[in-house]
Design a protein around this nucleic acid. Structure first.
Length: 850
DNA sequence: TAGAAAACTTAGCATCGTCTTT
DNA sequence: AAAGACGATGCTAAGTTTTCTA
């Protein structure tokens, strides 16, 4: 924003930035975390910082970036007690975590005293990692007890040392065990059911086939315990990957400087990439153009194109554009045979590359197609968008399969980059992509056992969090007031991640789009408003805007204000001493398997199940589905899953709005009629005089014209129909004059309406009474409200994508149980592919709980 | 041990396929 | 039959987390 401030800050910077100043600009490194004790006092200065410069209302997209983050004058650690009144953390909270563990037994005691801290005591104890091996029975129980039975001894709970070395194995085994038990139970039940059915002998084999297959492939029915998790398979056989066909030159010439020019095939191909995108947002994007042209002109030069292509402006790709448009058209108009042939071909490819054998089971491969060359389409303001993505050669591709598997043949004249036999990896093939230098993989499909297993594991971790969430929350609520900046920031971040379902927010590089998550939030992304309102406005993953206003906990509000004061400038990190790795490390300590994203999964699934309780027990299937989708939408909103509004949306909305206006129009007429019937009411019911909102005179005129037109149509149609009937009955048709008369009546009516418009007086229709009008108005009120509801419903749904949460965040067992409970067919909520993906989850019964 | 790379999940958009409307 | 709407699926970018490396 302003330089005056900035400069001052910069001076500050110089004083203490020390080692940071030599951090290379390009790399946005964080300052080494210097410890510091909070010296602020929350409660004063309140006004001083009520905020904020940057609330222009515009999204905070500017990136003032680089050097910023690193300045700040941190006091050092030697704590001056700040005498903060509400700091309750007894001795332990300022002990570094490592030491805290040792101190636990003590703290448990001291905490036991006050009630509020009683629970804290538990959490504190818990904070030291000691996930119980067998059965969750003991540690978690303590917590349960604490919350349920209120009292219970915290003291006895204090356990010895955490076994941090043996790491995650134990807990995951525990989870597995639990799952297995559950599954075993279920399958028993199922089997019994089956037998019963069989005994009665009546029910046919209907899906016998499927069932058998299922059993054979039902990995979830016999999860092995103590299996080494890192080993993913013992046998893996597949046919490699499919490469896109070589480029076939079409000879269509682009124009340069107004003249058609001849391009070498390789150059023509790239020109075509751009041509095909002409008139899209990408092709209009300057960065895209620039990046494209850089690569394109270089390539053209390498092929000695003449004349040399040096100016983007002189390029005219429209001939190519037209060519590709025509190709599209052709494809659309393929004959049946051609379509059939294409299908065959696709099936053959699917069979060849789309399937593999994993431990002898036939499984689907996800993306067996090597990504074809093209122009990189980065999202948002990606600095590299438009860059040429090169064709991948077999030499760049590594395959992963078991030693006993035959090595697929590389395309003629080529060799594979490498053949590996790594049974700890799930990928079948990998290569490096040239634009961002990132690694691409071919994995199994979503419905495969491997993916299913990790899906199950994911949700089990989320369910584990459900059991721990209470004390974890109490823990970070306490930490919000910790003296150490780092702890405070960590707690605040946890709060946001938990309550707002934010992503972790890793650091990003200079050559990526500037998007953020929780830990990478910057000054300008958050504005505060007294007393405890927080506005968030930033670009998240995929450059999707996150814009929400929320009420936050008082202490969170104070903390953010404090963090903001530190940077005090755009471009500075809000959580300047927190990295996702540190956050996750902490979370690991709280619960094995816990990472930032687990909160998203947990909250999504939990919210969903919670919202589903609104399902009408005895409604129609449609009503139940409505409830389902509402719950789904709540989750999508929570996770900020958006989509571009569809093209026709505005039109559709317009239509509904028109409908509302039409109702309002009718209501207006009714009101005026009342006044005609009973002029005295003007005083008693002044609302009758109030004009309807959003009802313009022009609109009314047009609307009435439409009404009349419709009326005429109706009359004509009726007239003709009547005559047809008469004909059938051998009667004489009505004379055309009759129709004319009828239509004249409409004209008369139109004149009446025009008059009403002018005078504002609506004479009562025959038989009208005030009462009747009143009921009419009431009805209209209702209709208007209902239509408005569908309007907001539609409006919100239009930019909310339900799919992502359904696919990734909502435990499918919740849905399966719901279907069972409310007797809704599964395929009403899951497509075939989703049913396939979630087949492991479909055996739960109606009372299953997340 | 931090930073980079690898591995894997999550994400929206383009396109496809199917069903409805014109 | 064409056009349009819309959900399902494919594609690959963009995240997070885990693992490797210097």
């Amino acid at each position: 924003m302003d330089h005056a401030e900035g400069d001052e800050a910069r001076q500050d910077d110089n004083i203490d930035s020390g080692s940071d100043s030599d951090t290379p600009l390009g790399k946005r490194k964080r300052p080494a975390v210097r410890k510091r004790v909070l010296d602020d006092d929350d409660d004063d200065n309140e006004d001083a910082d009520t905020l904020s410069s940057s609330d222009s209302g515009a999204p905070a997209l500017k990136r003032t970036r680089p050097a910023a983050a690193k300045r700040k004058s941190y006091k050092d650690d030697s704590s001056e007690s700040d005498g903060e009144g509400d700091y309750r953390g007894s001795s332990d909270s300022d002990v570094p975590l490592a030491k805290k563990k040792a101190a636990d037994s003590k703290s448990a005691k001291s905490n036991g005293s006050s009630k509020t801290n009683g629970s804290n005591g538990t959490s504190r104890t818990k904070a030291a990692p000691k996930y119980k091996e067998e059965s969750d029975s003991d540690a978690p129980l303590a917590k349960k007890a604490a919350s349920k039975k209120t009292t219970t001894t915290t003291k006895t709970k204090v356990k010895s040392e955490p076994v941090s070395s043996s790491k995650s194995k134990q807990s995951s085994t525990t989870i597995k065990k639990r799952v297995k038990e559950e599954v075993d139970d279920k399958s028993k039940v199922k089997k019994i059911k089956k037998e019963e059915v069989d005994d009665k002998g009546k029910v046919k084999k209907v899906k016998k086939e499927e069932d058998e297959d299922e059993d054979a492939d039902a990995w979830w029915l016999n999860q092995k315990e103590n299996e080494d998790e890192s080993v993913k398979w013992t046998s893996l056989k597949h046919n490699g990957v499919y490469f896109p066909p070589d480029y076939v030159p079409h000879g269509v010439k682009m124009k340069y400087d107004g003249k058609p020019i001849t391009l070498a095939p390789a150059v023509e191909e790239v020109a075509g990439f751009f041509g095909a995108l002409l008139f899209t947002e990408h092709a209009e994007n300057p960065t895209f153009q620039e990046n494209f042209f850089k690569d394109f002109s270089k390539l053209a030069k390498a092929h000695k194109t003449s004349p040399e292509i040096t100016s983007f402006k002189k390029c005219d790709f429209t001939p190519m554009y037209e060519y590709y448009q025509a190709e599209r058209e052709k494809r659309k108009n393929m004959t049946k045979e051609q379509k059939e042939a294409a299908k065959e071909e696709k099936m053959a490819l699917d069979e060849m590359y789309g399937t593999c054998y994993l431990d002898g089971r036939k499984e689907k491969v996800g993306n067996f197609r090597i990504e074809p060359p093209g122009l990189f389409r980065g999202r948002g303001k990606h600095p590299k968008t438009g860059c040429l993505k090169l064709r991948v050669q077999p030499e760049q591709v590594s395959l992963n399969l078991s030693k006993d598997a035959p090595i697929p043949k590389a395309p003629a004249g080529h060799k594979w980059g490498a053949i590996v036999h790594d049974d700890t990896k799930t990928w079948l093939a990998t290569w490096k992509e040239n634009v961002n230098d990132s690694t691409k993989y071919v994995f199994l499909a979503a419905g495969s056992s491997l993916k299913g297993q990790s899906d199950l594991k994911k949700f089990e971790t989320a369910r584990a969090l459900k059991k721990e969430i209470d004390w974890i929350r109490r823990g970070y609520m306490t930490d919000l007031k910790d003296k150490k900046m780092f702890i405070r920031q960590r707690a605040t971040a946890m709060y946001l991640i938990d309550r707002l379902a934010l992503r972790a927010g890793n650091e990003k590089g200079e050559d990526e789009a500037d998007t953020v998550g929780c830990c990478s939030l910057r000054f300008e992304h958050v504005t505060l408003e007294k007393p405890n309102i927080m506005h968030l406005d930033f670009l998240g993953k995929d450059s999707i805007r996150y814009q929400k206003t929320v009420e936050v906990d008082e202490q969170v509000f104070k903390n953010i204000r404090l963090f903001k004061r530190e940077p005090a400038q755009e471009g500075d990190d809000l959580f300047d001493r927190l990295k996702t790795s540190e956050l996750n490390k902490h979370l690991q300590n709280l619960m094995k398997g816990l990472t930032a994203k687990v909160f998203r999964t947990y909250n999504a699934s939990f919210t969903f199940q919670d919202q589903l309780r609104k399902t009408p027990k005895d409604g129609t299937v449609a009503e139940k589905l409505l409830a389902y989708n509402r719950a789904n939408r709540d989750v999508a909103i929570l996770c900020n899953h958006q989509r571009a509004v569809s093209k026709g949306h505005a039109g559709q909305i317009e239509k509904i709005e028109d409908k509302v206006r039409a109702y309002k129009y009718q209501r207006m007429k009714q009101k005026k009629m009342i006044l005609s019937l009973e002029p005295k009411l003007k005083k008693k019911r002044p609302e009758l005089l109030e004009p309807e909102s959003d009802l313009e005179d022009d609109w009314i005129e047009e609307h009435e014209a439409q009404l009349m037109e419709k009326e005429r149509e109706r009359i004509k149609a009726k007239f003709e129909k009547d005559n047809l009937k008469r004909k059938e009955n051998k009667e004489k048709p009505m004379p055309a004059g009759e129709l004319k008369d009828l239509l004249k009546e409409v004209d008369v009516r139109a004149k009446e309406l025009a008059k009403e418009r002018k005078t504002g007086v609506v004479p009562p229709t025959r038989g009208a009474t005030v009462e009747k009008c009143n009921t009419q108005i009431l009805k209209l009120d209702e209709r208007i409200a209902a239509t408005r509801l569908t309007l907001t419903d539609k409006e919100e749904n239009k930019q909310t994508a339900l799919g992502t949460s359904k696919i990734n965040y909502i435990d499918p067992r919740i849905s399966a149980a719901w279907c069972e409970k409310y007797d809704v067919p599964l395929d009403k909520i899951f497509t075939k592919t989703l049913r396939d993906k979630f087949k492991w989850a479909m055996t739960v019964d109606a009372d299953w709980e997340f």
